Structure formats: structure tokens, C-alpha cells
Amino acid sequence: MSEQDSRVMHHPAVVAHRNSRAGDVQLRIADAITKFAGSMPFVYLHAVAFAVWMLSVESSPWPTLTLVVSLEAIFLSTFVMIGQNRQAAFQQIKADHDFVEQELELRTNTELTRAIHLMTTELHRRLIEDGAEQ
């Protein structure tokens, strides 16, 4: 965790989700690969690697290069789907957390409204009784 992350307050669902993913080595590896594959260094590395391959490694690089690029696309699309599944799971956890919090807030507001109603009713009753006594 970076210094900036330690200073930022995160949603409890974010913290719980991050902690659950941190406990699974396979998910940490998938997250690291997905993070790198979605970066500009990944693009630069591939541009240089493919240029070197096409210019100096093989005299006819297209069949092998096509095979390598196809296999890489298969694996990268799998990592993209893993990332999408991770995001969907996080969104569900956050939605569940938010729902529980909103229900608690609604219940609290309802209780407060009832208490205010009872106090107002009692106040009106006392005012009417005081007015009738005079």
C-alpha cells in the first residue's frame, strides 16, 4: 500500500474486498498482470519486442508472430474477464453494504419521525389542557 493509500479513507466494502483479494495468491497474480497489461509500459515493451523480432530474430516472422500474438490475446482477454469479474464482485459487495446502511438510516429516520410526532402530540395535548384550565 502506498503512502497516499494509507492517508485516504476507503469505503468499508473497498477495504474488505481488497483484504479478501490480498489473501489469494492467484488473484494477486491476476491483478498484477491485469494492472501491467493495462499500462503504457506494456504497450512500449510490445512495440519494441515485436520490432526487434520482425527486424532481427526471424527472416520470416509472420507465422510465428501471428501465433504468439494470438496466444497472448487469448490470455490477455482472460485477464480482462478476471478483472471484470473482480469489479462486478466489488460492485455487488458495495451495493449490499450501501443497501444495509440505507436501510439502517431509513429505520433511524422513521424512529426519529415517530418520536417527534409523539412529542408534538403531547405538546399539543398539554397546550390544549392549559388553555382549557384558564
Rank of each mutant, 00 (worst) to 15 (best):
A95E: 13
L106A: 14
L106T: 13
T78C: 04
K94M: 13
R107F: 04
R86D: 10
D96C: 10
N85W: 15
E111C: 12
I93S: 14
E105C: 00
E72T: 04
F79R: 12
N85C: 15
E72I: 02
E111H: 13
F99S: 07
L104E: 12
K94Q: 15
I74S: 07
D96W: 13
I82D: 01
R107W: 03
A88Q: 03
E105H: 03
I93Q: 15
I74G: 12
E101K: 08
Q92G: 05
E105A: 08
A73K: 03
N109S: 11
E103V: 00
L76S: 02
D98F: 00
A88K: 00
F99A: 08
F79Y: 14
Q84C: 14
A88I: 00
N109W: 08
Q102N: 10
T110R: 15
M81K: 05
V80I: 12
M81P: 04
F79Q: 10
I82P: 00
Q84A: 13
T108I: 05
L104N: 12
D96Y: 12
K94N: 12
G83N: 04
A89E: 09
F75R: 14
T108S: 09
A88E: 05
L106C: 14
N85I: 14
E111W: 11
K94I: 10
Q102D: 09
S77L: 08
E101Y: 01
N109H: 10
N85G: 14
Q102G: 04
S77G: 02
Q84P: 05
F79I: 11
Q102H: 09
L104A: 14
F90K: 01
I82N: 05
I74C: 10
A88W: 01
K94R: 14
T110C: 12
R107K: 09
K94D: 11
F99R: 08
Q92C: 06
V80E: 11
E101G: 04
E103L: 00
E103W: 03
Q91Y: 06
M81L: 07
F79G: 09
F99C: 06
A95Q: 13
I82S: 02
G83R: 04
H97Y: 15
L76V: 00
V80D: 09
E72C: 00
A89D: 08
E103Q: 00
Q91D: 11
G83I: 02
A73F: 02
E72Q: 07
R107D: 07
E103M: 03
I74D: 04
F90S: 03
Q91V: 07
L104K: 13
M81A: 07
Q91N: 10
L76M: 06
Q102K: 11
F75T: 15
F99Q: 07
S77A: 07
F75I: 15
Q91A: 09
V80P: 05
H97D: 10
L76P: 01
D96P: 08
R86F: 03
H97S: 12
A95K: 13
F79W: 09
D96L: 13
